[in-house]
Amino acid sequence: MALTQQDIDQEIAAERAAYGKRIADGAPVEHQPRRDYAPYRSSVLRHPKQPPVAIDVAQDPELVELFSPAFGERDITEIDNDLTRHHRGEPIGERITVSGRLLDRDGRPVRGQLVEIWQANSAGRYAHRREQHDAPLDPNFTGVGRTLTDDSGHYRFTTVQPGPYPWRNHVNAWRPAHIHFSVFGSAFTQRLVTQMYFPNDPLFPYDPILQSVTDDAARQRLIATYDHGLSVPEFSLGYHWDLVLDGPNATWIEEGR
């Protein structure tokens, strides 16, 4: 029998209730989704059943995971962070500026690190060979960008507002508009791949991927803020989105760069 939105809604509600009960019983706030989150069907066969083995990094400051790969100016080109300039013509869609800071858990900026993004075009179509959604491709938009954070941890992209798109988790499943982010910290332990959403999207409650973050406050941290100060006159609307990297880093090691 085909899985309906109502089925998924019930599962999402059950997961939320279970989290509420864990909190009421004194369990810690869950900032991260659980890998085992059945409303997102692809997770069912792809999450480990065994708990992860903990490594206390304080026991060994030499762990290679406490260091990060380096990226530099030669890994990007000047216009990589302007996705509207990667083809001859202008992409279709509402131009946006997305900017924010990359921070660690101590609130310190992560400097000179790589931020990669990818997204659907304004019609909700990825320039990807396996994408089956029949919305139009835009010959002037690939939807891939890269940049390095500056000395205050800032990144900035110019792109177009991505469209929502259907997927096959269940019947009538739609992803809210989002931009995928991949970021590196000052330690490999802080590696993060995530998605940024736009404020007030009516699809939020129906999406099992966003709802996999069952903590309300944590989920809000995935949603950018409209920032009029970032809007560029006669050009684009501005969104602000800061990222805070989880995971330990080598706080006792002098930053070499």
Binding site: Q32, R105, E131, T194, Q220, R221, H240, D242, V244, L245
Partner: peptide, 24 residues
């Protein structure tokens, strides 16, 4: 919510992870 206030440690909370998805 998404402008992190770094003056208060309790507001510097981690950004949740999401799947890389199928279209990377």
């Amino acid at each position: 919510m998404t402008k992190i206030d770094t003056s208060r440690p309790e507001s510097v909370l981690p950004t949740p992870s999401h799947t890389v998805g199928p279209f990377y």
